[in-house]
Design a protein around this nucleic acid. Sequence first.
RNA 1: GGGGCCGUAGUCUAGCCUGGACUAGGAUGCGAGGCUUGGGCCCUCGUGGUCGCGGGUUCAAAUCCCGCCGGCCCCA
Length: 481
Amino acid sequence: MKISKEKVRKQFSEWFDWVLSEAEIYDYGRYPLKGVGIWMPYGFKIREKVLAVIRKLLNETGHEEVLFPLLIPEDLLRKESEHIVGFEEEVYWVTKGGSKDLDVKLALRPTSETPITYMESLWIKSYKQLPKKYYQIVSIFRYETKATRAMLRVREVTSFKEAHTVHETFEDAAKQVREAIEIYKKFFDTLGIPYIVSKRPDWDKFAGAVYTYAFDTIMPDGKVLQIGTAHHLGQNFTKAFDFKIQKRDGTLDYPYQTSYGISERAIAALLAINGDDHGPILNPYIAPIQVVIIPIPAKDDETTKKIINYCNDLKAELDKNGISTYVDTDPERTPGEKFYIWELKGVPLRLEIGQRELNNNTVFIKRRDTLEGISVPRSAMVDEIKKLFEKIDKDLKENAWKEFNSRIRYMSDLQKAKELLNAEGGIIEVPWCGDNSCGLKIQEITDSRVLGEPDEKKEVNDKCPVCGRQAKTVLRIAKTY
RNA sequence: GGGGCCGUAGUCUAGCCUGGACUAGGAUGCGAGGCUUGGGCCCUCGUGGUCGCGGGUUCAAAUCCCGCCGGCCCCA
């Protein structure tokens, strides 16, 4: 059976919606409210696996999980002026309690810098308590005016992991942003999602931040998806909240903060990145079900029973070895039908067990990613599966990165860049003098979105295509979601 | 922000322009039975619709008009 990626590339939107609903991951568009979706049991399990990865990474780097209120009183949200200007038009307001108008309007949190800074100002009094690193995984609400899209652009972001940290100095906070970037690199590396880190331009940084770094990936259709951000908040929020600490020298000063976030967009990317026309391909170390066993019934009931027993024995052995396994004994569906269903759910390995395997005491293993099958003796099954997990993990990641890197190009001609973005998408790096006005102009000319500049400035021997001065670095542009 | 398209069983869709023969057709799904089972097989029977919601025009509305809700696309 041949692997095709026609559909996932050419009709990505349709493919993605199809996967979410048919694989019973996420029901979107049927609940009678725009921009919200429902995590179905299988999707919820994938979500839990992904969240477990980020929780582990944060916990082992000294982050503590907390849970703040969903509601933010209006005056709190308005404390930091740039922040509220940035979010003003996206806030949902609760204005009534029963039939009575509320004295103070309540916002459904669009993000939690303000409530967290408020409480930190009560909790933290001394440099000795720093650094402090909190995080929570919660729903946030943003009234998106643009077209909403299942999991990619929603009004209730259900899996927002937001981290908030406090530091004694600007440099400490800057270091924390670096740590956040390292943590996210590990996170996306674990999931096998390729990424590029860019420093967002000034006009597109987080509302209230000194600077913003962002992780972007490229979806199969060539459009770019922001999958993570990390902000240096300076003293913007601590000043707004009059949050002071006692320093080493006894003086009082405002501490420095950072915040960084990821959301279910990471899960959307996870599903999309390795997808083919049969559905997504889950990384073996993320998949809620790692191995599915499909019994192939025999002509006679007695043999069929033996085959099922054999399957259950295999499952027991795999479970014992920590491999999450499901035996699909549904008598109503033919094996062929089950193959399609479990491929659609992205289960990385499948065992096809029929009379042949029963007689020879073997198992037939098929890889989801390549659809290649091998027959191995039963005694070698566990080792073989573990080896295949490693191989699939490695292959998926290598392929994803190869594809990703092939879609990042350098061009000095803006017209050609525009044409290429329209035709194929991807990310294009263009020479840039570093001036915001030229950056905005580049955005306009190429009819694209500026992602920002590389973390480490790149040597470029070209001139800025707008002003003609020597370029200091490159600016990354793309078509974005 | 500007423009366009669309909403009919769980899902997809025909019908809408040109109102009446629509008691709304099909596919898929779901249920029962049979036949099968190593890639969505086939057959029989059954199930399932306030035609998104509200209002208007008309003797008559899925069909025309208005508002709302929801979905999609293009442009900025």
